[in-house]
Nucleic acid binder design. Structure first.
Lengths: 119, 119
DNA sequence: GTCTTTTTTAGAACTATTCTAAATTTGCTA
DNA sequence: TAGCAAATTTAGAATAGTTCTAAAAAAGAC
């Protein structure tokens, strides 16, 4: 754990708004002005591959990053661009409502919803 | 409807294997050797924005395209790279199992599952 | 059939991300 | 604490999927 990784992780814990690498870079510079964008990517890769951070991809937009580890989906508000965590209701296993191919073993489930918030 | 758009659409109807723009380009060249990659992208954009074709994005891999219009998710077999359509069981509304933000109006729901097929 | 609009095309440009290679830091062992 | 190997950081170059540009071609309306 280097100071760069700590700063990146702290940025993600601070504001849980699913920032992009570029936004994380800008916030991290406030703590550690010498940090480089390549390092932000390196740190995010390390955190993601150690399952401490989740990478959220919606369409082909820049990846966003999220320190919420419990299983959840994402609601993408198309009027504001905000991304909001969507919890599954207690004890719900979504896969039981799907016609999965025979023998399917699930490693990862990703649910992205686009829409807007009325009022 | 131009001949290029027809060819692109026909390619998608022919083999329902979720090809990338590059693959569609290669297949389209068999029918219309003068077609360009930019045109493939243009045609796909037109088809997608007219809701005749769906664009499927998984991680940050190249977009794939799909002529299956009924609501479904995608199973991404990590050993073969194949993408398999996953139907929802009859009369299931996945959103009723989610804690959506108040006032959420859904325009689009995307479900991507990664894993592999045992045996 | 002419005219306006749309589409196609090739190639340049763009952008998020990854790679490279040198410099620095880490952390182990003594 | 010093020395050393391995890992990490850094700046800048490179990459790759996609989008843009502007000229040529095609489509469709009248």
């Amino acid at each position: 754990m280097t100071k760069q990784r700590k700063v990146v992780y702290d940025v993600l814990l601070e504001e849980r708004d699913h920032p992009t690498a570029q936004t994380i870079f800008e916030r991290a510079q406030n703590e550690l002005s010498s940090v480089s964008l390549a390092t932000i990517y390196n740190c995010l890769d390390a955190l993601v591959s150690h399952d401490v951070v989740k990478q959220v991809n919606i369409d082909r937009e820049p990846s966003r990053y999220c320190a919420n580890l419990c299983e959840h989906g994402h609601f993408h508000d198309q009027s504001t661009g905000d991304i909001i965590d969507v919890k599954f209701k207690p004890d719900v296993d979504l896969t039981q409502f799907l016609d999965l191919p025979q023998g399917a073993v699930i490693e990862n489930l990703e649910l992205n919803i686009k829409g807007f918030l009325k009022q």
